[in-house]
């Protein structure tokens, strides 16, 4: 599988480490009233779709960046690759 890195171009998936659902970035706010429930969902409940899935990959044998890869879990087709840092910065701005 080839991952088209936004900074480095197409790189072999062997260079990456898979972490899982990209929703891990969206850590709940511990000051919220229902923080317990939110953390329970955040830690234990995962979607496991057959189809497109946003997931975190770490470029360990490359530039050590975290990527959000939108991958079809049935066909391994990769639709989109973005830097997790960019996603996080964009999210912080919109808050």
């Amino acid at each position: 599988m080839i991952i088209d890195h936004p900074l480095l171009g197409p790189r072999d998936a062997n260079e990456f480490v898979y972490l899982g659902d990209a929703n891990l970035i969206n850590r709940p706010d511990w000051t919220e009233k229902d923080a317990d429930k939110q953390f329970y969902e955040y830690l234990y409940l995962r979607d496991n779709p057959s189809g497109y899935h946003r997931e975190l990959w770490y470029h360990e044998q490359g530039d050590r960046s975290w990527l959000i890869v939108t991958r079809n879990t049935s066909t391994h087709e990769i639709k989109q690759v973005e830097l997790a840092k960019d996603y996080h910065l964009e999210k912080s701005k919109s808050k």
């Binding site: 480095l8 197409p10 260079e15």
Partner: peptide, 24 residues
């Protein structure tokens, strides 16, 4: 090495981290 080493992709002066036989 998993990198594409053709001279029009990995050109002179290019640098990249990668792995060879699981070694960085």
């Amino acid at each position: 090495c998993p990198l594409n080493l053709s001279s029009d992709v990995f050109t002179i002066g290019n640098v990249n981290r990668t792995s060879m036989e699981h070694i960085g």
